[in-house]
Amino acid sequence: MRRPISPRLSDRQRELLREWLPSAEVLKDHSWGLVGTVVLELLHNGERYIAKAGDAADRHLARELRAHRNWLTPWTAQGRAPQLIRADSDAKLLLTQFLPGELVEGSPAEWAPDTYRQAGELLAAFHRQSAVPDDAYETRENQRILTHLAKPHRINPVLADRLRAEIADWPTPPAVLVPTHGDWQPRNWLTDDGTIRIIDFGRADLRPAYTDFVRLAAQQFRSMPALETAFVSGYGPDPREPDVWHRARIREAVSTAVWAHQVGDEAFEQQGHRMIAEAVGETPL
């Protein structure tokens, strides 16, 4: 009897993978380990695939599948994102072709301006697919961050009270939502002989375009401003109007600090505290 592909997959997920790829063998486990998502690189009949499976608490597989079915054409048509092969939304399992390349994060490409020029061009094509007005977006986002601040965290209590008071006074103007990646940064980019490709769509959703700038602004742009210049040159007109950008930075900072505390990622939690301090103009506490 064949050994299960991974004990962390459900019986139904293993059954489906054996049906889809009968002779599959695991080459590498790409799972992060912080959440219940399992990501496996598989070999079947000489071809490589990526299988992604969610656990009972997962909310990302549905978003990833939506992205594959509705938004990835501008990238897959150029070979810049993986093609969806099979999926079962009830089982929280999807299978894509393997996309060749080296992870940009931690490679020399992470600090190469041309990487960011390409990333800006790719993101602009993604964002241009549709635009949907939403009068309630800002209200929802304000409530989401207030909910985060009500969860266990290690944000200084005085600063947390200051944030709650500021958020309560924020305006709630109409927003325009576009398809966004949701985690646009080098850990989700591959480089293959100088060509940038994109992976991981578990946070894809309709949001304002500027939200795909926040993680880069908190990390690589902060360390090397020339990368931001290259990115915007590839992207086109910068969507970061000052007031909405300030609100986006606060939301991202709070989300980072609270989520990282919940999953026990202390280094990422400290980044969140630094992001909060910078967004409100304080020295990190």
Rank of each mutant, 00 (worst) to 15 (best):
E110N: 06
A260K: 03
W245G: 07
P157I: 04
G272V: 04
T147V: 07
P208R: 04
V214C: 09
L99E: 09
Q129Y: 04
R164G: 03
V214S: 12
T229Q: 14
G234F: 05
W245N: 07
G36H: 07
W245I: 13
G101Q: 08
H261K: 07
A119T: 14
R12D: 15
T283P: 05
T147C: 00
T283S: 13
E121A: 04
A248G: 15
P173Q: 06
R215W: 05
P239E: 05
A248R: 06
L95T: 11
P239Q: 08
G106D: 06
V158T: 15
V132A: 00
F213T: 09
L177G: 03
L21A: 09
S23N: 14
E282K: 01
L65W: 07
A168I: 02
F231G: 06
R59Q: 14
A81C: 08
I50D: 05
R80F: 01
L122D: 09
L65Q: 10
V178C: 09
Q185A: 02
Q83Y: 06
L123N: 09
A67G: 02
E15V: 10
R86M: 14
R14K: 01
A131N: 09
G101N: 08
R247E: 07
H153F: 10
R240H: 10
Q185L: 10
A119E: 03
I85R: 13
R59P: 02
E102R: 10
R14F: 02
D88A: 01
V158D: 14
H44R: 00
D192S: 08
P174L: 01
A165E: 15
H246C: 05
L216H: 02
G54S: 04
A204F: 02
R197D: 10
A67R: 05
E241M: 02
T73P: 00
H153E: 07
T211F: 01
Q129D: 04
R12L: 15
P152Y: 06
L9I: 12
A87R: 08
W20Q: 11
G36L: 04
T73M: 00
D205R: 13
V39D: 02
G54A: 01
Y210A: 06
L34E: 10
